[in-house]
Design a protein around this nucleic acid. Structure first.
Lengths: 126, 126
DNA sequence: TATATTAATCGTCAATCGACGATGCAAGGA
DNA sequence: TCCTTGCATCGTCGATTGACGATTAATATA
């Protein structure tokens, strides 16, 4: 048995990886940091604090989370630290999202379930 | 001024959208639900509960979050509910991740900052 | 009408998150 | 040596999350 985590073709390890990456992007301030880093040719030090408009300690904490996920890398250039994106880090997330997006082509959201006669009384669930 | 939320080329509204989508994917159980939905031609009712291995109420809560994000749609087929992915929903997230991934081609993670002489004493920040 | 099936909702609890100000720390310059 | 600069870390607070069992709601079926 190659991988004991495998279930129905997907493994829980990968799910945890993807979730961790998504979590890193799951806050508006962090998304804005990413976008900011994306808008620059190189990377920036504490300008991020000005850009985001939160306290320095708060931004530092967001950067810590981003670094922990691997999405952002910091290079020390005393007294500054130089932040930049590591695009390769979000590969697992990118792959899954790519799969979902690809499904969009073949499969309109309406087509459904294994009980074909189900279409009779269709309501939207909320 | 076309959009008061614009800051340095990105708007906070979009950041919130992206963050909300990422948040929906920011839990291993929800990622596994997505992968499970992806592994099926159509969609499934309460089989998700068996697949995930958490209590029914917990899975229901995760499904609520996924529906709220638009990523998953539920169609009522009494007494079941038929869940399926709506690939279009994660467009904003997909777009941003696409941008980041594209950057990977031109820009290796090492190249950095606007102070070119910085490369002298390079350490890794943790 | 009574019962079984399936999913949503409620109430509760511990754990985690996000924000802040204050403080600490390492290098560079006066 | 004493400041200054730039970032990390600490401690604290309220808010949110994630898990569960119990309950409720809506149908189908006996």
């Amino acid at each position: 048995m190659p991988d004991p985590d495998m279930t129905h073709g997907f493994d829980t390890r990968n799910a945890a990886q993807v979730a961790a990456l998504a979590k890193a992007m799951a806050h508006p301030a962090r998304v804005r940091i990413i976008e900011f880093l994306l808008s620059r040719p190189g990377c920036i030090g504490g300008d991020i604090v000005d850009e985001i408009g939160l306290a320095q300690s708060t931004v530092s904490e967001h950067l810590r989370i981003l670094k922990e996920s691997g999405l952002v890398v910091g290079t020390i250039e005393r007294p500054r630290i130089c932040y930049s994106l590591d695009p390769g880090a979000l590969e697992p997330l990118h792959a899954l999202i790519g799969l979902i997006a690809a499904r969009g082509a073949q499969n309109d959201a309406a087509s459904c379930c294994y009980t074909p006669q189900a279409y009779a009384g269709k309501e939207s669930a909320e």
